[in-house]
């Protein structure tokens, strides 16, 4: 049984013929759409490395069957920067050294973007740490990650203020 679905990935519409309903969004991105920025860490929703935004919300792409997402908008790490201009979360991760090996980083960053959009953590360090706890980092760059998310939240709020002023 094959399925024809259409996804908007990083702003571009992609028509995908799925030969197999078993394909997860993660494996679709990595193995079929040449978007390997999204990483596989556990493939079971236990580490967060595969986090992407689906319709603006952060989810584990390893547990999302691609076939269920017909019509969805997907944002991956490859779609976050605007040309050479990094997203504030990306820039903050570099400034605060919020990663070491970089493997969990795409998931951390997408999770942070999702967390900031959710708007429940603000700049409270404990709420940020709790909100980022679905993303394991074995290098344990947690200190820098928490600082980066806090800093990016501030930067984005300031940008929003400037934009609305």
């Amino acid at each position: 049984m094959s399925f024809s679905i259409s996804l908007t990935i990083n702003g571009t519409r992609r028509d995908v013929l799925l030969e197999d309903a078993r394909v997860t969004l993660l494996d679709l991105l990595r193995e079929r759409l040449a978007l390997p920025g999204t990483k596989k860490g556990c493939d079971r929703g236990q580490c967060g490395a595969c986090t992407v935004l689906v319709d603006g919300r952060r989810v584990n792409s390893c547990l999302s069957l691609a076939v269920t997402l017909d019509g969805a908008e997907v944002t991956t790490i490859e779609g976050l920067a605007q040309g050479d201009r990094l997203h504030p979360v990306q820039a903050a991760f570099i400034d605060h050294d919020g990663f070491q090996c970089g493997y969990c980083t795409p998931g951390q960053i997408m999770s942070a973007v999702g967390l900031i959009a959710e708007g429940h953590a603000g700049t409270d360090p404990d709420r940020i740490r709790e909100g980022m706890s679905g993303n394991l980092c074995r290098c344990a760059a947690y200190h820098g990650i928490a600082e980066a998310v806090q800093d990016a939240t501030r930067r984005m709020a300031a940008e929003d203020e400037r934009a609305s002023a």
């Binding site: 390997p36 976050l80 970089g102």
Partner: peptide, 16 residues
């Protein structure tokens, strides 16, 4: 840093 925050740093299994 830029490669790692933009998803362009190529890890082994990213090759296809």
């Amino acid at each position: 840093g830029v490669a790692k925050v933009t998803g362009t740093a190529t890890f082994a299994a990213d090759n296809h």
